[in-house]
Simulated assay, not measured.
Amino acid sequence: MYRIVFLLISSGLLIGCNVKSNQGNLKKNTIALPYYNDPTFTPLFIKDTSKVKEEITHTIADFEFLNQDSVLVNQDIIKNKIHIASFIFTTCGSICPIMTDHLKIVNDRLQNDKDLVFLSFSVTPWIDTPNVLNTYKKNRGINNNNWQFLTGSKSGIYTLARQSYYAEEDIGFSKDSTEFLHTEHLILVDKTKRIRGIYNGTVALDMEALVNDIRTLQGEK
């Protein structure tokens, strides 16, 4: 919980930076949002873009899963694009519908941004076939072609969630694919596949912070 509190505070402080970014006032080679390089989600602020590759070594790993249309989707879909990752399952009656509805608010606010991708990974892929995900997407009123609902190997999804996205509150490296993954976290990743934000998908206020942070990333050089 401590990092969620920190992020709520820091997101509020960064709104001012976001406004400046949108107005084109960010100085050359400055970076407004932090990076997250390990599962502790310790924010790392880097002032100079030339230092990023040296200091931020963690990136999202390659992947390949089926989407809701039974099409194989891999890391090429997020190449040079900002993306948001969520982990849901269609039979969830608690946090998943709230998360998806809140994320749809972000989608609707930024529906004209073609370089923004939403990836919703199923944590019950043995239930959530492409057809099931297709029905789920339609029933939630989601028409965005850049919002992919993904299914496939359980171990593949769980490994990606825990070791690439650091999706859970607890440090994911201590868990294996036999332990069920259930998290309210939304992960914001920049065009270089580096993690730049984590948000509580059940909190509407976090969606405003997410929108602002996406706009800030869009202004980065």
Rank of each mutant, 00 (worst) to 15 (best):
A204I: 13
S177K: 09
K79M: 05
D101I: 07
N212I: 00
K137R: 14
L181Q: 04
L26F: 06
E220A: 13
T178F: 13
T57A: 02
P130E: 06
S164R: 08
A204D: 11
I171C: 01
L110I: 12
T159F: 06
M99E: 08
I157W: 14
I198T: 05
T49G: 05
F41N: 01
K79Q: 08
L8G: 01
P97H: 11
F149A: 07
R140N: 14
N25E: 13
I84V: 14
G201T: 10
K27W: 07
A61L: 03
T129P: 06
N67I: 08
I127M: 07
F173M: 04
I88D: 08
A61T: 05
G12A: 10
T91A: 15
S155Y: 05
L26E: 02
G201R: 14
S10L: 04
E220F: 12
N80M: 07
I4E: 06
R194N: 01
I127Y: 14
T57F: 04
T100P: 02
L210M: 14
L119Y: 12
H83G: 01
E55H: 03
K79L: 07
D176M: 08
L44K: 11
I105S: 10
N146V: 02
F89S: 04
V203A: 11
G219P: 00
V52Q: 04
N143Q: 13
A85W: 02
G197D: 00
T90N: 03
L116Q: 10
I105R: 10
L150C: 09
N80L: 07
N22Q: 13
L72R: 14
V203K: 15
K193D: 02
L7F: 14
K51W: 00
T151Q: 07
R194L: 02
W126H: 11
I95V: 15
K28Q: 11
T100D: 03
Y199K: 08
L160V: 10
R3K: 09
N145E: 14
R162L: 05
N29H: 15
D128A: 12
G197W: 08
E169L: 15
R194V: 00
Q148T: 00
N107Y: 12
S120Q: 05
S164C: 06
I98E: 07
T183Y: 08
T59K: 15
Q68D: 11
Q148Y: 15
I77C: 12
L72S: 15
D213G: 09
T129D: 06
I214K: 07
N25W: 14
R109V: 06
R162F: 10
N80Q: 13
I84Y: 08
P34A: 01
R215D: 04
T159A: 09
H185N: 12
T151E: 08
T202F: 07
L150M: 07
E220C: 10
